[in-house]
Structures are given as structure tokens and as C-alpha cells.
């Protein structure tokens, strides 16, 4: 369906997008996950045809879209600030795309109703959009994007401006909607929880480069780089050195660990190579490797405890524990052995 090929873009002489390439399958939801300034929104605007790329191609069913202006692509785009037309009512906003596509008056009425019903806003049809709350505006924007039945739906941080409980509610509705309409969708966010909740596949964007793309589980369990690990909330990273290549054994300030090589095969592992090691957060009592330390802080999180631990060598790590611990307590934590990963050392994960 959608193919994005080697997109390059600079902004004020700095590279913003560097050779971004991916494809989107029918009915699939892809989440573009990255920090602010990683070029996510620009990529969306390039796909929508609102901005030109400096090089690279966007194809739809094999046809190059370069000569197709935005208004002829029939891609839906939902904006971060919703961009509702302030001079139109809710229904007129939703009808806009239908009018542009020359849909007949009666059909417009029916489809506006349908779209508003989909987002539970049917009773708001005659309201002014300026009188709506943030969550209501978000729903209207979604209805407006969906009404012309776009070939592709793109959503640019649609939940960014809303408070937490509303976000969770809307996330659930969005999830349901994306699955029932089966419109292929690209969802841009910086929030990994949102991404994991919605995505069939997640694509990680870092400094304009697509670092990793895969199912949420695969990406979480096997991040492609220390940056990806940290970005997804895996913060237990430490330096080490390879002492044995096969099986991989890494020596660190906490002692030796057996690890999996998560870098590219061409990059190692070699004996003596400096590496970055990831220690998983979740305790697994069935295996042998362990870490000792003193608990400095503990947070009760309902389904477990989040403990900050400092080791004898002054390393700070955090863990999810099922058992209760107290601050100041000396603990020994068993590690999930096959979750320990190693990459060639890089400075670039802060």
C-alpha cells in the first residue's frame, strides 16, 4: 500500500529526516515513536503532500505521489492542535471534506451523522467548535478526518494536549475505531504507552533516522540500540567489556554476566570489545544471575513495587519487584537471564 522510500529533509541546514524508509500494509496501524524534534510531524506532512521532501519517494500502490498535490491524495490528517475551522459548526467541520469531494447534499447529511456517531458526538452537531472542550474538539477532528473515508489516516499526537484520564478513555475509543474501520493508519506520538496500546507495528525515530521497526513486543524486548532501550523505559544500562565471545560473557562493575548480542552481527562481539549492557527491570527468581544492593527509594504501584537500588559500586538501578521491600534494606535481586542484552558501546543514549 504505502511505501515511503529514503526520505531526506533538512531544516535550517540541519538534517531533519535521514533516509527514512518503511511500508504500511492494508489495515495496519503503525506508530511513529520519537522524542520531540525527531522529525515525526514533518514526515507526516511529507506523506500528506503538504511539504516537499528533498529526496526520496512516497508511493501508493506502486504509484509515485510526487506530482499529486495534497488535496488530491485523499489522505486524512488529524492535527496536533486539531485545526478545526472556527467559523464553522461541528457538523460543517465534518462536512467540509465531503463538500470538497463533491458529495451530494443528502449524502453529506447522512455521512456527517454517521461520522459524529462513530465518535459519540452526534448530539453536538450544531454546536460551535469554539465552545467545545479539548476532548470534544479531538473527537470532532477525528470525525472530520474520517468522514471522507480516506485511503490512509494520519494522526499527529492527537492526545498530546489532554489530561491523563481523558487520554486513557480516548485511547481506548481510538483503538476500537482503528480496528473496526480497518483504515491503514500512521499514528505519531512520543508516548510509548500510547504507541504500544494502538500499534500493530512500532517505528522508532531518532535524530531523523528510523532506528527500529517491529511489533511492540519485539521492539520492547529487543531494542536495537541503548537509545531505543532507554527511550522505551529500560534504564538499567551499564558499561562492560567482552571477556568471552561465544557464548557471550561481559565483565562489568557488578561482575560477569551472560548476555545476548543485540547489536548488528557485523559489529561484534569480539573479545576485549567495550559494550553497553542492559539489565532488565523485572525480577525473575527462576534463574541464577543476580545483583546486590541497598534500596534507596520504593514506590508502591498497585501490582508491585518500583525500587531504586544502589550497588556497592555506586551504580543506580531500578527494578520491578513483586515482594514488598523497604528503603534502607539490603536486597539481592534475581535477573531474567535471557533479558540481558549487549550492544557495542555508544555515547548516544542519553
Amino acid at each position: 500500500m504505502l511505501e515511503v522510500h529514503e526520505i531526506e529533509k533538512t531544516y535550517e541546514f540541519k538534517p531533519l529526516l535521514r533516509g527514512v524508509t518503511f511500508t504500511l500494509e492494508p489495515g495496519e496501524t503503525l506508530c511513529l515513536l520519537g522524542a520531540s524534534g525527531s522529525g515525526k510531524s514533518t514526515l507526516l506532512r511529507i506523506i500528506a503532500g503538504l511539504e516537499p521532501a528533498e529526496s526520496g519517494r512516497v508511493l501508493w500502490n506502486g504509484a509515485d505521489l510526487e506530482q499529486v498535490p495534497a488535496y488530491k491524495r485523499n489522505f486524512g490528517l488529524m492535527f496536533q492542535d486539531y485545526a478545526l475551522f472556527p467559523h464553522h459548526s461541528v457538523a460543517e467541520n465534518v462536512a467540509f471534506g465531503l463538500r470538497m469531494h463533491g458529495v451530494g447534499r443528502e449524502e453529506i447529511g447522512a455521512r456527517v451523522k454517521e461520522a459524529l456517531r462513530q465518535v459519540n458526538m452526534a448530539s453536538f452537531a450544531d454546536r460551535r467548535v469554539t465552545d467545545l472542550s479539548g476532548g470534544e474538539q479531538q473527537r470532532v477532528a477525528l470525525a472530520r478526518a474520517l468522514a471522507p473515508r480516506p485511503r490512509l489516516l494520519m494522526l499527529d499526537e492527537p492526545l498530546g494536549a489532554l489530561d491523563r484520564s481523558l487520554r486513557e478513555q480516548l485511547l481506548e475509543e481510538l483503538r476500537h475505531l482503528l480496528h473496526t474501520t480497518e483504515i491503514p493508519a500512521i499514528y505519531v506520538t512520543h508516548d510509548q504507552e500510547e504507541a504500544f496500546a494502538l500499534a500493530d507495528r512500532v517505528a522508532l525515530l531518532h535524530h531523523g533516522e528510523l532506528v527500529q521497526i517491529g511489533s511492540p513486543l519485539a521492539v520492547y524486548q529487543c531494542p536495537a540500540s541503548p537509545w531505543a532501550a532507554r527511550f522505551l523505559g529500560q534504564t538499567n544500562l551499564l558499561d562492560g567489556q567482552v571477556v568471552e565471545a561465544r557464548p557471550l560473557v561481559v565483565n562489568t562493575a557488578l561482575g560477569g554476566f551472560t548476555a545476548h548480542w543485540a547489536g548488528k552481527p557485523a559489529d561484534g562481539p569480539k573479545i576485549g570489545q567495550k559494550v553497553t549492557l542492559l539489565i532488565p527491570k523485572r525480577e525473575d527468581r527462576s534463574t541464577g544471575a543476580n545483583v546486590r544492593g541497598r534500596v534507596t527509594d520504593v514506590l508502591f504501584r498497585g501490582d508491585g513495587f518500583h525500587a531504586e537500588v544502589v550497588t556497592a559500586t555506586e551504580l543506580r538501578l531500578s527494578f520491578w519487584l513483586a515482594r514488598p521491600v523497604e528503603a534502607g534494606e539490603e536486597v539481592e535481586i534475581s535477573l531474567q537471564a535471557n533479558g540481558i542484552l549487549a550492544w557495542p558501546q555508544s555515547e548516544d543514549y542519553e
Partner: peptide
């Protein structure tokens, strides 16, 4: 806001139409 014009374009409004529907009001 530029996003209003972009929204209109994505919804299928030609540049002329964007001006008439977004700028003029």
C-alpha cells in the same frame, strides 16, 4: 494558523478553494 489551511488541503480543497473557505471568512 497554517494548520487550518493544511487541514483544508488534506480534506481535498484546492489552493483556490482553501483561500475561499479558510482565508476569506
Amino acid at each position: 494558523p497554517p494548520s487550518l489551511r493544511q487541514a483544508a488541503a488534506v480534506l481535498g480543497a484546492s489552493p483556490r478553494r482553501v483561500w475561499w473557505e479558510v482565508d476569506w471568512p
